[in-house]
Amino acid sequence: MTLDEQLDRTPDAQVPTYTPAGPPRPSADELRARIPGWGVDLDPADRPSVPKLQLDPGRTGAHWDFPERQQEEPPRERSIEHRFLTPVFGTAQPTRGLSGAIRKLAYARWSDAQTAHWLALIAADRVDVVEGFVGSILSGHPDNLLAETGIRAELTGDGLRSRTGDGRTDWKHQWMDPFVVAAPWVLAGAGAVAAVRRLLR
């Protein structure tokens, strides 16, 4: 009998959710027998994240109240919601070029709370991609779109069967992915064409 048929046969007044009884619950013994480890963390007070506040500096390994400061070289952008540059920070990929200028503006001008802050950073990301593409050509290590997209996995990972053999729904939008990849080039190309046309007029 399907679930729908079961539900149809239950008189309205006996549907437990609509009575004080509520739905039946399986017994602990049955669950313990079926599921290895069932209930070993049953006590809510005895779970690692309870209580939420658990500061014990003696146990974290920290031997400082305020950490020694990491040297700042070159100047590091920071959120204006911070009073100062955090004592430790990542130094990967310092800002550079036009994308760097946009990023510096985004951090200097708008707080994390402002949509403009995030939209400027997303715009900088797209500019960075174009700069990276040009830079890769100039450096002698040009981008290889086929290799970088990992498209070979369509062959090694059985792309066709993977998409047709599952009850999946993401095929509805996966066709858009190449356009997302190509968008910075298309936009940059269109901009370059427009700029050249304007100069020639």
Binding site: K52, L53, Q54, L55, P57, T60, G61, A62, W64, D65, F66, P67, R76, E77, R78, S79, E81, H82, L85, T86, P87, V88, F89, Y107, D112
Partner: peptide
Amino acid sequence: CGSCWFCARGLCHNVNPNATA
């Protein structure tokens, strides 16, 4: 960092200059 007010809540404040969120 293991020592700041936020670390008590699993949310350190001393390591990410780029955002407070």
